[in-house]
Amino acid sequence: MRIARHRMAMIGLVFCIAALLMALFADVLATHHPERTRLRDAFKGPSAEHVLGADHLGRDIWSRVVYGSRVSIGIGVATVVLTGLIGAAFGLLSGYFRNLDDPLMRIMDALMAFPGVMLAVAITAALGPSAVNVVIALTAVYVPRTARITRASVLVVREMDYVQAARALGAGHARIILRHILPNSLGPLVVQLTFVFAYAVLSEAALSFLGMGPPPPTPTWGNIISDGRDYLREAAWICLYPGLAISVTVLGLNLLGDGLRDVLDPRMKVTQG
């Protein structure tokens, strides 16, 4: 595995695994119940009792950040899976069946014309704030970009000799697409999905910050920051730590994505809307 020798990618992988472990073992790592309020502790700074301090309702910030990782990373994973499936399907269809290409790609162009966060905000505003609706909204934002990248590699792979050979041997469309084209177009898709994960975590945080994420008292990294916004003067720690958690997770994913790109797809450029 060449990726194992990519130092930055390995640093990124460590960050990602740390975030994943935090989400998986939230109940072990948390010192308090993330939603239990205790007004006596309101605005208490970091101490032995509350390692990262407490918020305006006396809730433990460390425990909220730890449990918040479940929502933020869960939404990221769900978005990546959905985007991967739908984006790959659109990309394969568009790249393989030339008469589907134009209509599908015009729809993708139209979706890509909206500034990503604005479209996601509008969709969650229509459907209502919840984790599922955030996943739907983010999928709508990232499917077009993923479909385009898959399509681009399908266009190259479909002209390869082994695809012609398979066709000459009488293989059907489904077999050619799934057995020959998909496996050979996977590299750019994997790279793209790593970046989609990073952008999904960032966008989820923005949506939650705007009040369009899972409703309170469920902690998400974005809504903890939103809670702390009114108390910058008295309790800066409320905002500080969830933001660090977002940054470290996204940084990890970006470093991993860069490494995967160097290894799997050296010609791909960094462009992402």
């Binding site: 990073a198 960032l202 945080a205 923005a206 910050f209 974005g222 920051i225 702390g228 916004r229 910058l232 905002c239 500080l240 933001g243 977002i246 940054s247 996204v250 940084l251 970006n254």
Partner: peptide, 10 residues
């Protein structure tokens, strides 16, 4: 990698 709104608050 850092959320812009968080950097704004910082």
């Amino acid at each position: 990698s850092v959320p812009s709104f968080w950097i704004g608050l910082i």
